[in-house]
Computed example of a mutant assay.
Amino acid sequence: MGKVGTFGYIFMKDKEKKFSRTEAPHKSAQMVEAIYGCKWSLTVYQLLARGINRPGEMVRSVEGLTTKVLNQCLKRNIEFGILERVSYNEVPPRVEYKVTVFGEKFMEILDELEKLQRAIEKQI
Rank of each mutant, 00 (worst) to 15 (best):
G2I: 05
G2C: 07
K3Q: 14
K3L: 15
G5E: 11
G5S: 12
T6P: 06
F7N: 12
F7Q: 09
F7D: 11
G8F: 06
G8R: 10
Y9Q: 11
F11P: 01
F11K: 14
M12H: 14
M12C: 08
K13I: 12
D14K: 15
K15Q: 14
E16I: 14
K17C: 07
K17G: 07
K17D: 10
K18H: 12
F19Y: 13
F19D: 09
F19E: 10
F19P: 04
R21L: 12
T22I: 13
E23I: 12
A24W: 11
A24K: 15
A24R: 15
P25N: 12
H26Q: 12
H26G: 08
K27A: 08
K27P: 01
A29W: 09
V32W: 03
V32H: 05
E33H: 13
E33R: 14
A34S: 08
A34L: 05
Y36S: 08
G37H: 09
C38Y: 03
K39P: 02
K39H: 13
K39E: 14
S41P: 01
T43P: 01
V44G: 00
V44D: 00
Y45T: 01
L48A: 04
A49T: 08
A49F: 05
R50N: 14
R50A: 13
I52F: 02
N53P: 00
R54T: 03
R54P: 00
P55W: 02
G56A: 05
G56F: 00
G56W: 02
V59I: 08
V59Y: 02
V59C: 03
S61W: 02
E63K: 15
G64M: 08
G64H: 09
G64L: 08
L65Q: 02
L65G: 01
K68N: 07
N71V: 05
Q72A: 05
L74I: 05
L74A: 04
K75C: 05
K75H: 11
K75A: 09
K75D: 10
R76Y: 02
R76C: 04
N77M: 15
I78D: 03
I78L: 12
E79D: 15
F80K: 01
F80G: 01
G81T: 06
L83I: 04
L83G: 01
V86L: 08
S87H: 08
Y88F: 14
Y88W: 11
E90C: 07
E90H: 07
E90A: 13
V91T: 12
V91S: 11
V91C: 04
P92A: 06
R94T: 07
V95N: 07
V95P: 00
V95Y: 05
V95E: 07
Y97H: 04
V99C: 05
T100P: 01
T100K: 05
T100G: 04
F102R: 12
F102Q: 09
G103H: 04
G103K: 04
G103S: 09
G103W: 03
G103Y: 03
E104A: 10
E104Y: 08
K105A: 12
F106V: 04
M107V: 03
E108T: 12
I109M: 14
I109N: 08
L110P: 01
L110E: 09
D111Q: 12
D111E: 13
E112L: 11
E112A: 06
E112S: 06
E114Q: 13
K115I: 07
L116Q: 10
R118P: 00
A119G: 05
A119C: 04
I120R: 13
Q123Y: 06
I124E: 12
